[in-house]
Nucleic acid binder design. Structure first.
Lengths: 139, 139
DNA sequence: CAGTATCCTTAGGGATACTG
DNA sequence: CAGTATCCCTAAGGATACTG
């Protein structure tokens, strides 16, 4: 964004955009939810559970880590193992994400829009099918 | 986004992205908050209170209206007068936005980051100064 | 006053190939 | 397995001039 007077400052100093950037983007709610479901998750698990490219996944995980929402633990094994977990701060955004999901779910229902069943399983709106939840997007 | 299998469907049917698109974008929290503060707001008031261009403002207002979060009332006067108000649905997102703002505010405070005082006034974290709140970005 | 109409720039996301 | 490294593309946002 170009600067008009104090515009940059306005956005840099804004808690809305700070928080939205931290966990209200296209992928982050899913990543946080995916970790929550498994308690601890590995890199490839994400790529099986979500239609996300490696590059975008890496970027998002690095940001979540930098913002303190998740931890990344590397185990010195062959083949390598890296595990992702939510931090306390990461868990603190879950109720907000639940509220966002619920709002969207209710509004979509009201409008009669089709809702993805996978997300509903993750959120407890639909009975879980572990086979489907494990790797719906495995390529 | 290109389609990989059922990716498009995944996103179209996702309540997170539905809700985020509806009110968790760069400008919409401000617009919703700006209306809330004034109860009813006019087009030019937004451009004085926020560093937003007319084009982007128009787009955002149209989307908010299409999604049922605000109403747009045209009065047949000269010069023209158009007033924007929150709907019941629009008011229903305010608690979620408050939670998002609060999370961001607390986290920014913890990190020692500077927070824009104007937003703090709007949110009651700082004493109101009507002169500043009226048109901080008037050009 | 309340917008359109243009034109332009950039950041986010995507596909794919490669590596320690 | 868990990522980098490239290259590409489009959609969101921005500046500015104009209008009923």
């Amino acid at each position: 964004m170009k600067a008009i007077g104090n515009v940059e400052l306005f956005f840099k100093g804004d808690p809305y955009n700070f928080a939205i950037k931290a966990f209200c983007t296209r992928w982050k709610p899913f990543l946080i939810k995916a970790i929550g479901y498994d308690e601890t998750t590995r890199f490839n698990r994400f790529t099986k559970q979500l239609p996300i490219s490696e590059k975008v996944l890496t970027e998002n995980l690095r940001e979540l880590e930098a913002d303190g929402l998740i931890t990344r633990t590397v185990y010195a094994e062959v083949p390598p193992r890296v595990e992702y977990k939510l931090t306390e701060l990461g868990r603190s955004v879950c109720p907000i994400l639940e509220a966002i999901y619920d709002w969207g779910w209710n509004e979509m229902k009201r409008l009669g829009l089709p809702i993805d069943p996978l997300g509903e399983m993750w959120h407890g709106y639909r009975e879980r099918d572990e086979k489907v939840m494990e790797s719906p997007f495995k390529r």
